[in-house]
């Protein structure tokens, strides 16, 4: 066996990583209000209760509006930044890119409170829109990370061939570059959608009276009787994110294969 003890360790590590996710469906289907062992028999009633839970549907609707808008805007901004940083040299590049990528390491609470102060300062009411503003800020660095690897693996000569054949920079971008980086764009849309759907702090601070799904979930943790329903909801959300991420990974790899690059693995 290759790796020996390392492999045993890595597998144990995966078990540690997945422990909470494995427990989730166990409690979602467990016939007891208390979230504890031993389990008490199988039921699907938490899923049907979820269907009629007050407040859940409006929260889901808000979350979907926010996640779709953030994904589209962040990916659009990411295309600009990734294209600029992989194709052009310009003064202040490191500083500008550093600022754009900063939310990747900055604690979210700092982003949230600083935006809150400014938005309230200019008198903008808190709403879905203000959450979108924050989520775009948070997700753009992730889209840039994905799109940069897509743009980096592009062969520059393809673009030059297009110019020689009389295309303008814009038509060359649309006809040659865009199709080649399309898998990267799809992957970036899916990842930013997933991040936005899951984001709590910014939605909590900037949402005002508009509740998103994570804010709804957080508020339900205070009521022990509604926790099993949240476990059911969580099971569906985890399944959905795994599905979306698998599709994103598929497109990311296809994109790299398409433009002839080498797969360095991972989203970051």
């Amino acid at each position: 066996m290759r790796g020996g003890w390392f492999k045993v360790y890595a597998l144990a590590y995966l078990v540690f990583l997945y422990a909470p996710i494995v427990l989730l469906p166990m409690f979602a289907f467990n016939d007891a209000t208390v979230i504890a062992f031993p389990l008490n028999g199988f039921t699907t009633k938490w899923f049907s209760e979820m269907w009629v839970a007050p407040g859940l549907w409006p929260a889901l609707k808000n979350s979907l509006i926010i996640a779709v808008s953030s994904a589209v805007i962040a990916t659009a901004l990411g295309i600009f930044a990734a294209r600029a940083s992989t194709r052009y040299k310009f003064p202040g590049k490191a500083g500008i890119m550093g600022l754009i990528m900063l939310p990747l390491v900055l604690p979210e609470i700092i982003v949230a409170v600083s935006l809150l102060v400014v938005l309230l300062g200019i008198g903008m009411p808190l709403s879905i829109f203000t959450v979108i503003l924050g989520h775009v800020l948070m997700t753009t660095p992730f889209t840039i990370a994905i799109l940069t690897s897509a743009f980096q693996s592009l062969d520059r000569s393809l673009e030059e061939a297009a110019y020689d054949l009389g295309e303008t920079p814009i038509s060359a971008f649309r006809l040659v570059i865009l199709p080649l980086v399309m898998p990267g764009i799809i992957s970036s849309l899916l990842i930013s959608f997933t991040i936005s759907l899951d984001e709590f702090i910014i939605a909590f601070f900037l949402g005002g009276t508009q509740v998103t799904l994570p804010v709804y979930i957080f508020s339900q943790f205070r009521f022990p009787q509604s926790v099993p329903v949240i476990m059911a909801l969580g099971t569906i959300l985890v399944a959905l994110s795994i599905l979306l991420l698998s599709i994103a990974e598929y497109f990311r790899r296809r994109g790299i294969a398409k433009s002839g690059g080498k797969d360095t693995g991972g989203f970051l």
Partner: peptide, 21 residues
């Protein structure tokens, strides 16, 4: 890639619920 994908998945899935668990 598969290993990295397996390692990153839990990171992207419902942070709140993971903490609660």
């Amino acid at each position: 890639s598969l290993w990295l994908f397996l390692i990153t998945i839990p990171f992207w899935t419902s942070y709140l619920i993971r903490v609660f668990l």
